[in-house]
Design a protein around this nucleic acid. Structure first.
Lengths: 345, 345
DNA sequence: TTGAAAGCGCTAACAT
DNA sequence: ATGTTAGCGCTTTCAA
C-alpha cells in the first residue's frame, strides 16, 4: 500500500519548473513555452500524475459532482432514469453520488444536507416526498444549490421541475378502459407521492365527468408502492378486493410492479387476465413486456426523462438565474394484451 | 442564489472563539469547557453551519466516500447489490459514487482513475471485465487503494474477492436437469465475464463426467448479456436454436433476463414451457417470480452480496494489511415451475 | 513566459 | 482549556 500519492509538487520538481507552470499546462489557461510544456507533460506522464480533485474543488468552488436521489435503487423504474442522468453527466465530466431515501422524508432532507456538505454542483431528486415539496423545503434548497425535481410538483413552489405528463397518461388509460366498457375500475396506488395524487385526481375527475359514483373500496392503497415487496402487497390487496361482492372488472395500477402483482392476484383468485379482469399498468418498464399476457401500460420514457433532467440541471448550473419552469414529457398508452372489451348488458 | 456558504470562520467569530475550538466541539476529540461548548453549538445552530467535506477530506486524507462500479445500473441484478452496499456504507457514514461501465474494459479503467482522483476511500467493482483481472490491472489498483471485487476472479491474482458459489449453483441446476432426463441442454451465456466462463466450464465438466458429447450449437452466446436488449437478443437466439433439427429439451440461461427472453422465444416458436422445453435461469431476481409459469432459477442473494462486500471493504479500509481471501457465498437452486421430467425412451 | 505567494476551509501539532 | 500556526494540494492573482 503506497500511500505516497504523487502531487503537483513532485511533477514540478521533476520537470524543473514551479507548480504554477505545471498547473498551467494541465489547465491550458495561460501561455506556456512549448519546450517547457513538453518537459512538464513528460514528467506528468512518467509519474503518472493525476490531480487531486478535492484540492481543485476546494479552491475552484466547483467539484464536477452531482447528487442523485431516488426512493429506492432496487426498483424497475429508477435505475433507467439514473442511467439517463449518468450518461449525460459523465459525458460532461461529472461523477454522480447516488443515494436511496427509502421513501422517507426525513432521510431525504438528511441526504440533501450530506450532498451539499460534499459540495456537489447540483442535485437531481426523483419522486421526492410530497411533504418536502409542499412545506417549501425543496424551494429553500433551490435557493442554495441547483436542483432539478423529477416527477414531483406543487403549485406556486419555485423549483425546476421535469415531469411526465402523467395526468394525460392516466387520462388516456382510464378513458380507454371506459371505452372498453369498464365502469367498475379499481385504482391501485402507493402512499404520499405526487404521482399517486395526480393519478388519483384524474380517476376522480373521470368519474365525475361521466357522472359515475365512486366506490371507495376501489381506491386501494399499497403500503409500499416502490419496493421489492410491492408486487406481493399488491397481489394480496387485489385478492382481497376481488373477494368482495362487487369485484371490479378492471384495475388501473400506478406502476408496472403493482400491475404485475395485481395480475398474479387475479390468477391466484382463479380468474383470468383479461377475460375476467382487465388491467393497465404504468411506466412501461421491462417487466411489462415479459408478463403473459403482455401488459397494457403507459410509457414514461424513463431513460429520456433522466437525460432531459440532466441537461436541465446542466443549464441551471451554467446560469444560476435560469427561470423556473416545468418541462413536461409526453406519455403514451401502450396497448398490449391485458384489456378486454366488456360485454355491455 | 446565496453563494456565501457559512464557514468555520463565521462560527468562530459569532461564538467569540478561535476556529480551533469550533473544530474541537465539532469533532469532540479534545476537551472543551462546557460553557464555551454551548456557545459554539449555539453559533453552529444559528448559522446552520455544516463543515465542508472537501476541506476536511483534503487534510485528513479520508473522504468517507467510496466508488461503486457496475456494468449497467439498468439491470435487474446490480441495483439490488448496490442497495446492499449503500445501506451498509451509509450506516457507517459513507456516501457512494456510482458509475456504469457498459461492460467496457477501457471505460472501467477510466472510471477507476476518476474515482481515485476524487480520493475515494475504497472501491467496489461488480462483475469487472475479465481482461482487467487477468492482465493484473485490478491487482495494481489494489496496491494503491482498498478494492473489493464482486463476482470476478482469477487464480493467482492478489485481490479481495467476494463471490457467489456460481460453480456449485450451476452444477446443481445442470444436474437437476440431467436427473429430470434432459441430455440435450442448451447453454445461454453472455460475453467475456468470469461468471459466464465459470458456468460454461461446469457445463463442459458435467458432460464429460457423464460421457456425453457436447453439441457446439448448444453453447449460444448472447452479444449483450446484461442490458435492456438482453431479453430480445435471447429470444431471437433461442428461436433460431429451436429451428434446428436437434432442438434442445431444456435451456440453462446464465441470468434470469436471458431466461425470460428464452421463455418468450420458446412460446413464440409455438412451444410450451415446460412441456416442450424446460428452462432454468440464474440470479433469482424479481422477474423470476413474475413469469408464467414461475421460473426455476438459482438464488444469488444479491442484497446480501452487496452488504457482505461492503463489510469486507470496510475491514480492508480499516486495516490495509488485511490478507487476501475469497469470500464465497452459497447459491441455491429454487425449484419452481419451468422444468419438467422428460419421458425416457 | 514564468515564479512567488496568498488562500480555498478545515485539522492537528505546538504553544500558552 | 484555548489559541496560533502550519499545512492538505491545488489555482490564481500579482510581480518580475
Amino acid at each position: 500500500m503506497e500511500k505516497n500519492k504523487v502531487t503537483i509538487q513532485d511533477v514540478a520538481k521533476r520537470a524543473g519548473v514551479s507548480i504554477t507552470t505545471v498547473s498551467r499546462v494541465m489547465n491550458k489557461n495561460y501561455p506556456v513555452k512549448e519546450s517547457t510544456k513538453i518537459k512538464v507533460e513528460k514528467a506528468i506522464e512518467e509519474l503518472n500524475f493525476t490531480p487531486n480533485m478535492l484540492a481543485r474543488g476546494l479552491i475552484r468552488n466547483k467539484t464536477y459532482t452531482i447528487g442523485v436521489i431516488v426512493p429506492s435503487i432496487a426498483n424497475l423504474f429508477f435505475p433507467t432514469v439514473v442511467k439517463g442522468i449518468e450518461h449525460y453527466m459523465k459525458a460532461h465530466g461529472y461523477t454522480i453520488f447516488l443515494s436511496d431515501t427509502e421513501g422517507d422524508a426525513k432521510e431525504e432532507r438528511k441526504i440533501i444536507t450530506t450532498l451539499m456538505d460534499r459540495q456537489v454542483d447540483g442535485i437531481i431528486i426523483i419522486d421526492p416526498r410530497n411533504e418536502n415539496i409542499k412545506n417549501g423545503y425543496l424551494e429553500e434548497v433551490t435557493k442554495k444549490i441547483p436542483l432539478v425535481v423529477i416527477n414531483g410538483y406543487s403549485k406556486g413552489i419555485k423549483c425546476h421541475f421535469v415531469l411526465n405528463d402523467q395526468e394525460m397518461g392516466t387520462y388516456d388509460a382510464l378513458n380507454y378502459l371506459l371505452e372498453c366498457g369498464h365502469k367498475n375500475v379499481a385504482f391501485l396506488r402507493g402512499k404520499d407521492s405526487y404521482s399517486y395524487d395526480l393519478k388519483e385526481k384524474v380517476y376522480y375527475d373521470i368519474h365525475e365527468k361521466h357522472e359515475m359514483v365512486i366506490n371507495q373500496e376501489n381506491v386501494v392503497i399499497i403500503e409500499d408502492g416502490n419496493s421489492i415487496q410491492t408486487s406481493d402487497l399488491s397481489m394480496a390487496a387485489v385478492m382481497k378486493r376481488l373477494e368482495s361482492n362487487n369485484p371490479p372488472s378492471a384495475i388501473f395500477a400506478c406502476n408496472d410492479t403493482m400491475a404485475v402483482g395485481a395480475m398474479n392476484g387475479i390468477k391466484k383468485a382463479g380468474l383470468r387476465v383479461p377475460e375476467d379482469v382487465s388491467i393497465i399498468g404504468y411506466d412501461n418498464t421491462m417487466i411489462s413486456q415479459l408478463t403473459e399476457p403482455k401488459l397494457t401500460t403507459v410509457d414514461q420514457n424513463m431513460y429520456e426523462l433522466g437525460q432531459k433532467s440532466a441537461r436541465r440541471l446542466h443549464e441551471i448550473m451554467k446560469d444560476k438565474n435560469e427561470s423556473f419552469m416545468r418541462i413536461v414529457l409526453e406519455n403514451s398508452l401502450i396497448k398490449r394484451d391485458t384489456v378486454t372489451i366488456l360485454n355491455q348488458d
